[in-house]
Computed example of a mutant assay.
Amino acid sequence: MNKPKQFLEFVQAELDKKEVGSLDEMNQQVSIIIEKFNSLPVAPFLGLSPTQMSNILYRPLSFENDVFTFECQNINKFKEVPLFRHSMFLLNKLKNEGEIKATQIGNLPRALVREMYNEFFFEERYARLPNNEDDVLGITMVKHVLEISGLMKKRTGKFSLTKKGENLLVKDGQAQIFNEVILTFLNEWNWAYGDGYPEFYQIQRSVVFNLYLLHKKCQDWVSDKEIGQFYLNAFPTLVQEAKWPFSPEDEVINCFSIRFLNRVCLPLGLLEAKEEVVEKGKRIEYYRVTRFFKESFGFKETV
């Protein structure tokens, strides 16, 4: 049904139930009706209401919000998050060495990049021995996240721990490091970094909905295109930002798949992935939520 028509019919049906004696009373009733309408679940939002969606789109992600709570206090569980393992590796490297000299353009040195590559990234698709930090997105990402979170700094051409980073490592504050890294990655790191797609900032701003989408639709294996279509159903106006003139819908879906499913959820240990080769040169990616996701997120019963 046409949304404006649906809204007007809803308002009229609600007003027909009331006896309104004055214009002020009518205005008051209309305000109540609008609030009620905006609290109704919407199918493309997978049962969330417009009010809930507004609340989660215009606030930074927190571990407790209108849709879910996230809690992980088990240090052994932290190790299931690749981004945390990468972060601890680099932080402990700085702790042991004190300072690490940056390259002329401010990157991590090649020797350290290759050490991290051999430790964490050598099995990735299209992996090749890197010549510099820019050859491995995951290394660039963890460097920036640690700098943004205030755990690591670069001064006079050298990387070192901040006081905050030093204190947390001395106190074995892995839980706080975990929280700092995850929230910085989700709220402040630019997910669009280097992916070649239009800005599509909505994909990052809707992170709470994105995680809710995984909860609702990815309990078992589902293709990246199907997940992307669910996302596009919720935010169809994103096609107006697309640059592909012949298939703007596919551009949004592909961007969501790469930017969120592949480059956010996999480093956070929220999804596991597999692929199916359907014909030469063509693959279908499938995802489902991990045990870590199921054990760490609590989705609210009202949702």
Rank of each mutant, 00 (worst) to 15 (best):
K5D: 11
F7R: 13
A13H: 10
K17I: 11
S22Q: 00
S31I: 04
S31W: 00
S39H: 14
G47P: 00
S49R: 14
Q52D: 15
S54W: 02
E64A: 14
N65D: 10
D66M: 02
T69N: 03
Q73N: 12
N76Y: 11
N76D: 15
K77Y: 01
P82M: 09
V113A: 08
E124A: 15
R125N: 00
A127F: 05
R128W: 04
P130S: 13
N132D: 15
G138W: 01
L151Q: 13
L151D: 13
L151T: 05
K153I: 02
L161R: 07
G165M: 10
E166G: 01
E166T: 15
N167G: 12
L168Q: 09
I177N: 12
E180C: 00
T184E: 01
F185H: 07
W189L: 09
Y193D: 11
G196E: 09
Y197C: 06
L211M: 12
Q219P: 04
D220Q: 14
E226F: 02
L232K: 01
T237D: 15
K243Y: 08
F246L: 11
E249K: 13
D250F: 02
R259T: 11
F260R: 03
L268F: 06
E285N: 12
Y287G: 07
F292G: 01
S296T: 13
K300A: 06
